[in-house]
């Protein structure tokens, strides 16, 4: 599988040519996400020096892993669309609506509903339907995905607030929260869930026809179509799948806090996009995969955790993320492919 993963390195070719000759270079190439691992190493080094080793303490590492779980799931969702070369900004809206639906359908203190475990397929269905609309707007109405999904996000967020009447809905079903905050062999269960999802997507991307065709579309949509790839159908399914995963993330957010509100959807898009870019998934499409999404999220979460540990003004975090996002995109984007930069 070495070859597939070397995609993520494509765009740091200058760095690559410098190191490729040496033995270190060989090692660098044999590991699929070396560049990102090095970044993580640098982040870890800086913060462990800055916090006298506190950063690398096992308990902090587990905290970072636990914190990274939900962002990771979101990143795993959105990176799929980005591999297609499209964009999905509907994340916050879909998470908000699924979170609110989960809150109202599980045993809660506002309505009489209690769907129990059925909630899992229900949130996936809601998210999936929203994703499907995104896909249809992009392929059938031929609208640029970044604006249609932005519109979707606003629409769904508004709907979420309406049906929740703008307030939080406390849950009375503690089972979900128990699973979320539990640990398995000392590792947060929710992190394991995220990794499992990553694994499923990894297999899908590398071992199935759908995965191969996704990359073909991301590489060049016109050529892929010529070769017989069913472009529209795949785009719609991936948008739908992405929506389903947003739905899962919405449920997990609700479970973790044992209550639900539309505002749980707020401020999720930005870290997810940063993780995608930092992980080496190129915004121009066709490059990078689930592994990149996983490591990208860990880097971003570790970075923010480190800033907290070093007692840096918490509001500086979004500035740091903004700078990291812009620089990561600057490094990974293939400017020849998108032609004119708008």
């Amino acid at each position: 599988m070495k070859t597939k993963n070397s995609r993520s390195l494509e765009n740091i070719s200058t760095l690559r040519s410098k190191v490729s000759a040496s033995a270190v270079g060989k090692l660098y190439h044999s590991i699929p996400i070396s560049g990102q691992i090095i970044s993580l190493g640098i982040v870890a080094l800086i913060f462990s020096l800055g916090t006298n080793g506190q950063f690398l303490h096992i308990s902090n590492i587990m905290t970072v892993l636990g914190l990274s779980a939900i962002p990771m799931i979101l990143c795993l969702a959105v990176h799929q669309v980005i591999i297609l070369g499209a964009m999905d900004l509907s994340l916050e809206g879909i998470v908000a609506i699924t979170a609110v639906s989960a809150g109202l359908l599980l045993k809660n203190s506002v309505t009489a509903n209690d769907v129990g475990l059925w909630i899992i397929p229900i949130v996936m269905l809601i998210g999936g339907l929203a994703g499907l609309v995104n896909g249809l707007l992009n392929t059938k109405l031929r609208m640029p995905s970044f604006i249609s999904t932005l519109g979707m996000s606003w629409t769904l967020f508004g709907v979420a607030i309406m049906i929740s009447k703008g307030s939080s809905i406390p849950l009375r079903d503690l089972r979900f929260q128990k699973v979320i905050i539990s640990e398995f062999l000392g590792i947060p269960t929710v992190f394991i869930l995220a990794i499992l999802l990553g694994l499923v997507l990894y297999i899908m991307q590398n071992k199935t026809k759908l995965g191969k065709h996704m990359y073909a579309i991301g590489g060049n949509e016109i050529l892929a179509k010529q070769a017989g790839v069913k472009v529209d159908r795949i785009k719609i399914s991936i948008f739908g799948l992405t929506g389903m995963i947003y739905g899962l993330a919405g449920l997990l957010l609700v479970a973790r806090l044992n209550s639900s509100a539309a505002r749980y959807g707020n401020n999720l898009l930005f870290p997810a996009m940063t993780a995608v870019a930092v992980g080496g998934v190129s915004l121009s499409g066709g490059v990078g995969g689930a592994l990149n999404a996983v490591i990208g999220t860990i880097i971003v979460v570790a970075l923010n955790n480190g800033l907290v540990l070093m007692q840096i003004n918490p509001y500086m975090q979004s500035a740091v993320n903004g700078i990291v996002l812009i620089s990561a995109v600057a490094l990974t984007i293939d400017r020849n492919k998108i032609g004119i930069i708008k």
Partner: peptide
């Protein structure tokens, strides 16, 4: 860098 990424990032800054 595409403007929607540039400005998404700079909005945070």
């Amino acid at each position: 860098i595409p403007s929607f990424i540039t400005t998404l990032g700079s909005n945070g800054i």
